[in-house]
Design a binder for these strands. Structure first.
Ligand SMILES: [Mg+2]
Ligand SMILES: [Mg+2]
Lengths: 388, 388
DNA sequence: CCGAATGAG
DNA sequence: CCTCATTCG
């Protein structure tokens, strides 16, 4: 049972060593090198024979559920979940990831951030979700063998992040972006995509969505802090990018492997907030990786560590006087809960060694003369204080 | 043989635990609480029965050897050695430290920085060197049991730093200062003393001398970086202290346990220089702690690590137009060599697991119209470049 | 008093 | 994919 630790380490090591050697050999890359915007289509997925075979029935999204039509006042809600789904644990992988797909079909989140996706689990997700979700994975930069820097990171990535967008409620705008942390020895990356809700009442309130799996283990604290700084810098850039004035809110999160002091160390600016903190730090979803509550992974020796590894950061476009129209919108967190906390009856294990975090957001228009709609959670107050 | 490692760890742990408990009990403190300026006199050393019993014959110092008399042009040379003498290793301690005292009597350095002095070895040094050297050890602040912060550092210190000043060539000015790093879990401290050469030709070129043993082991990198920052801040303060305008040069060093990246991390200002680097980074004295060259300590498992743990930093008082007269002097490193590299014939071991660093300095007066004397080493050039 | 790896809580 | 302590090269 606890050769999983060994397995984990082994895989990390294998990948690390691999990049030293065969930086040029493309095996099964998470890429698209076909210019299809990094969004996986059935056509691009040559390795995917079962794609679209068994799509879930069309799920009605909750986003825009409260939306009016046409020029009605802006309104809308979104559900976002982030989850490290532990594709590196091969035990009951089929059962666990079928259950994950079922969970997604049942709860119909609008946005799904996944970490530790591997090809076998990607196939499962595609099989069940292709008709209802766009599945976005990182591009895999083609390594240039004469470029050492490229060689150190351009190799096929054995596990990676993914963003799923509910086709009914939200759609990708433009190509996703994959930034590979240059100093990572675990091929960690930041996967991001701009997205627009489909509901007419919310379609002008675009989001910049990003997910990442920051460098793991205490040993790589320094690199993880660097990576978080990169994340924060990207978030700041997106929040002030004049090319995408319609983006009002940036949400980046995932398995960040963070210990609290590291957030300060990274210098995350104060206007970028931790969603769990914004929502009052509920104890019920503090420890997203908790060996006392989840025995998918068992420490040798019987220790029961737990950590708040999975986090979401949110930033709102500044509302300067000269801000674009989207500057008046903001997606505001309303609630947060932990998911995946039940054992699967089929195998007695959990979907992952991490729990997921499910966050509900509502669209708010905090201009004078009344709330634009939906922003009546505890978050509304925090936002009002924060707004200039 | 390699229960030394165990011993080391054990002692460190004991001390750490001790401070949690008996913060108030004074055992054998390195102190003077008698207001004698921290400089150990035979009278203050109640535990020292053999003091002055067997003094070495008066050694003629090299400092001022080249000095003229009276109002002749400033000139002078000084020899400074820094050495972690591993008093925590009790093996052959008497032989090893008698050999250390012999080395000092033979080479007659003007300034000696020692680390890991313990009471038994202090007695040996006193026995052989009291008549020829002033032996300065840290004050031991009396802990106030109601003051938690004091409790964490005010306990008797089992091993400590010392500064020895050759009575013939240099004399302490005022009281020494002991700064205890507040976050140290090893009771580490910075021991400093202002000193004036006795030679008439150099008596206006005072030095601020400091030695320290920074937090050991890779594990305590962060605390060590903090401590180095404190050292650098103190050096800057001394270099600009209007109360001691006669101090022209500050030299602080010892067993700093540094790995190269930590120096940057500590933000040591660029005008504070590493003496070994100033002198061209000679390979012959790079590794002051070298298991390949010194088997006083043997790693279990047979590893042969080596590090440049022992370092000296030097800073010169800025020569602003309004600078005091001493601003025109500077003690300039001329050469550096490693000492203690021979096995003792008596026991086949080395004096310490660390080698010592012996540095020769000469007094320079780099004003326009010719060198003031002595500054013709390779260092003179570096100084000339550095001088404003 | 190294750094990487291992083992136990 | 925890922390500490220990082992091993
Ligand atoms: Mg994992
Ligand atoms: Mg030592």
């Amino acid at each position: 049972m606890d050769d999983q630790m060994e397995e984990y380490r082994k895989r990390q090591r294998e990948q690390y060593q691999k990049r030293q050697q065969d930086g040029t050999e493309q095996t099964e890359a998470p890429a698209d090198e076909k210019g299809n915007s990094g969004q996986v289509s059935a056509a691009a997925a040559a390795d995917l024979v079962e794609a679209s075979v068994q799509d879930a029935g069309a799920a009605s999204s909750s986003a825009g559920a409260s939306a009016g039509t046409g020029a009605s006042p802006p309104s809308g809600s979104l559900k976002l979940v982030t989850w490290n789904v532990d594709g590196l644990d091969e035990g009951q992988i089929q059962l666990r990831h079928t259950a994950l797909a079922d969970w997604i079909k049942t709860h119909k989140p609008d946005i799904v951030y996944l970490q530790e996706v591997v090809y076998p689990t990607l196939r499962i997700l595609r099989k069940h979700l292709t008709s209802t979700y766009d599945i976005i994975i990182p591009t895999n930069p083609r390594p240039d063998p004469s470029d050492m820097e490229s060689l150190t990171r351009g190799i096929p990535c054995a596990y990676f992040c993914a963003v799923l967008l509910n086709k009914q409620s939200i759609q990708a705008c433009g190509a996703p972006d994959s930034k590979w942390y240059p100093q990572s020895c675990m091929m960690r990356h930041l996967l991001s995509i701009r997205a627009r809700p489909t509901a007419a009442s919310a379609k002008d309130a675009e989001l910049l969505l990003g997910t990442s799996h920051l460098e793991s283990t205490a040993e790589y604290k320094n690199e993880r802090v660097n990576q978080l700084s990169i994340v924060a810098t990207n978030m700041e850039g997106w929040l002030s990018d004049p090319d995408t004035p319609s983006v009002c809110t940036v949400i980046v999160g995932g398995d960040l492997n963070l210990r609290d002091p590291e957030v300060k160390a990274a210098g995350v600016p104060s206007h970028i907030r931790d969603v769990w903190e914004l929502l009052g730090k509920p104890d019920s979803c503090r420890y997203t990786w908790d060996m006392a509550a989840n025995d998918n992974l068992v420490m040798q020796g019987g220790g029961k560590p737990r950590c708040r590894f999975d986090r979401l950061f949110i930033g709102q476009r500044p509302q300067g006087s000269a801000s674009p129209p989207s500057g008046r919108y903001r997606w505001v967190p309303q609630s947060i809960e932990m998911v995946g906390t039940d054992r699967l009856s089929s195998c007695g294990r959990f979907i992952s060694d991490h729990f997921g975090l499910l966050v509900k957001l509502e669209l708010a228009v905090p201009t004078e003369g009344g709330e634009g709609g939906g922003s009546k959670g505890q978050k509304a107050k925090a936002k009002a204080k924060k707004g200039k």
